[in-house]
């Protein structure tokens, strides 16, 4: 561990997991930040980034299972995985409340649907923003 002042980071992920490397970079950033004693206030999924939250993702065997990585990270380090409800519902990523039937929900804990204001409230709380 290095001798740095602990920083609180808020990440905004805006690209889908298999169209860009943004999610990979975000996961690597989180791991490195935690390793160095910093904390992640929340990871906020916006725009196409909401696809990271879909429990129906089925990557090929030789690809990184981004969804599982996010879940592991959240459970191990109690990180909030917040998904913009408007951006997600537009793209068919919905929790049990928004799904036409509860069984169709593909957004489940540790991901949570929130409004965009939740992201800005975290920024207001002296978090350093990283947009990916």
């Amino acid at each position: 561990m290095t001798n740095t002042i602990p920083t609180r980071f808020t990440l905004m992920v805006t690209k889908s997991p298999f169209d860009a490397r943004n999610a990979h970079s975000a996961l690597s950033f989180c791991a490195a930040a935690i390793e160095q004693g910093h904390s992640i206030t929340q990871v906020f999924f916006y725009q196409k980034g909401v696809h990271n939250a879909s429990s129906l993702l089925q990557p090929n065997a030789d690809e990184l299972d981004v969804y599982s990585k996010w879940c592991d990270l959240a459970k191990k380090h109690a990180i909030n995985l917040n998904v913009c409800v408007t951006a997600a519902s537009r793209r068919g990523v919905v929790d049990a409340q928004l799904a036409p039937e509860p069984n169709y929900a593909n957004l489940v804990w540790p991901f949570t649907q929130v409004g965009l204001t939740a992201y800005f409230e975290a920024l207001n709380n002296n978090s350093v923003n990283i947009q990916l």
Partner: peptide, 19 residues
């Protein structure tokens, strides 16, 4: 792309909490 709409919505959300 949806970027123009998304940036606009982000701006409105930020002012909504007084930023």
């Amino acid at each position: 792309t949806s970027d123009a709409t998304d940036s606009l919505e982000a701006a409105l959300a930020a002012t909504n909490i007084g930023m």
